[in-house]
Design a protein around this nucleic acid. Structure first.
Lengths: 310, 310
DNA sequence: GATGAGTATAAGCGGAAGTTATCGATGTGA
DNA sequence: TCACATCGATAACTTCCGCTTATACTCATC
């Protein structure tokens, strides 16, 4: 019923002492104030000002409104300022979810960049493989997901990707990891079928699926001797000579890999790393800034013009 | 910039979980909410809701607004309720100023009546002779004045009475007060000139002025032996035989006057008692109620059809 | 009594904000 | 799997609130 504008007017009258002064202090004309007060008076059902000749004075009810005006207006200001801080990147929180093997290099770099640019933006980071992270995004539990998709597949299987904004970040080569002394290590590019009889070490479920699919196309079914979600463990197993593995190049930039050789595959295989969010969330400045930081970090990491836009 | 309506909408969305539900809870249609949110978003410069498919969720900035909405809206409600209490006579304060000789009878009765009708209305009462009370009214220091004017004069001399609302309350006969054994006490009506040689006891300055003026018209200049603003003292002096006095009838209803006789004057003299306020203040319910209580008490006090409307 | 300062009122206008109608997208249930 | 129900977005229209301009009126002051 009664609104902030009315309170603002009453307060201006109380402060300035006349309708005319109140009007100019609010950037209105005098009749506007006159009408506003009249409207307020008939809404509240009592006189708010006492017009004694040419000087106006607030009545008790008028004083009440002027007094409450301070509370209401300052609460409004506080709300406005808080939102303005979020809009102006002087505040804000981003919930980021990334798959584990990105946490070591791409994400830390991006977050460092973001922190440098917008120190006040806080990021809550959690790890999650693409299916989980997209589900979290859909459920409103995170704002931005870093996910990957093997060449020829989609980021999320069975998800409607139309609802998401998907930005390519990196094009990550999948390489064959071998112990240093492995016989296959003597050629630069290894045909996958030559490793048909090797024991295999698989990564995460999707990575295992990718291996199986590649092997199928190369004409064999891989003998998966071990599997681990942790690429450090995978590389350890390879180093120990317990098998070979398919490892994204990005891993090798961050995990220690002495005692391990990697070779390009033929046919080559790649995975695309994407940042995923929604159209609305991209309009949240902190989310957009994080997205940009991810894109900038990715651009700095990859060799020039390696990225294939899907 | 941002107003209470916007906050109310954000809060409704937060509470109801959808635009449609928020709309019906606020009594609007769904497009109204849709547009409202869009306006808010372009005013604040950030996304406030995340439209994931057909479910909407608030963003951080949206949550901020919904959170502040509680503060702002409850402050607005508080203001409204406080004013409504004043308008509904469940609260309110009246500053009443009355001349001393009315304080004993008319005013107490009126205030008792007011208290009976509206127990929550508080009255701050102070005494003041007409010139002061009108000045206080003009200065905004009181809301309602009980003043008197001797027949043929105005309530305030030199004041512009147009600014005031003046309501007649009582028509008070001015009587001659004598010691019981005074020779003039043997006739019902006393011609003022017969008291020309008496020593006089005068009341307040205006009353003394009235005495002088009446005496002048009766052909003598009164010998004022004593004067006192306190009518109890005046009556005491009369009782002690130190002189005679002109005393309004109203006084005799409230002050003890054993040992004193009063007689009507010829030519008769009266004073009018009025309640004075401003047009605006009369629209303040508590002031109007006090005014009515005064009028009701006055009506109860006077003999039927004694009041002369000026 | 003229002037200046202040408020009230009338008339008019613009735009803000609501409504209806409709579309597109998204789950849901037969 | 297709139809249906639900929800949000959009467009077009309309209404009416609230501001401005213009003017009258009141009241102090010189």
């Amino acid at each position: 019923m009664i609104d902030a504008a009315g309170l603002r007017v009453m307060k201006a009258i109380a402060d300035e002492g006349s309708f005319t002064a109140a009007a100019s202090s609010l950037g209105f004309t005098q009749p506007a104030i006159s009408q506003m007060v009249r409207r307020l008076e008939q809404k509240t059902g009592t006189a708010l000002v006492d017009r004694m000749g040419r000087q106006v004075r607030l009545t008790e009810a008028g004083e009440v409104l002027a007094r409450h005006a301070v509370t209401v207006l300052s609460a409004l200001d506080a709300a406005e300022e808080e939102v303005a801080a979020i809009a102006g990147l002087r505040s804000g929180r981003v919930r980021l979810m990334a798959f584990p093997s990105s946490s070591a290099s791409l994400v830390p770099q991006a977050l460092a960049l973001l922190k440098r640019r917008f120190p006040e933006v806080t990021v809550r980071f959690s790890e999650g493989e693409p299916p989980e992270s997209l589900a979290a995004l859909r459920a409103g539990e995170c704002d931005l997901a870093v996910a990957f998709a093997y060449e020829g597949t989609d980021v999320g299987r069975g998800e409607d990707l139309d609802a998401f904004v998907i930005r390519p970040l990196l094009d990550d080569e999948v390489r064959l990891a071998l112990p240093v002394d492995h016989p296959l290590a003597n050629s630069d590019v290894v045909d996958l079928s030559r490793a048909a009889d090797e024991p295999w070490i698989a990564g995460c479920p999707r990575c295992r699926g990718h291996l199986v699919s590649l092997a199928y196309r190369a004409g064999f079914a891989p003998n998966v001797a071990f599997e681990s979600e942790d690429y450090v463990a995978v590389l350890g197993l390879v180093r120990a000579g317990l098998g070979v593995s398919l490892v994204p190049d990005l891993i090798l930039n961050s995990a220690p890999h002495e005692g391990i050789e990697t070779r390009s595959l033929s046919p080559s295989s790649r995975r695309q790393i994407h940042a995923v969010t929604t159209e609305d969330l991209l309009r949240v400045p902190a989310v957009a800034a994080t997205m940009e930081a991810l894109e900038a970090s990715a651009a700095a990491m990859r060799p020039v013009s390696t990225l294939r836009t899907p």
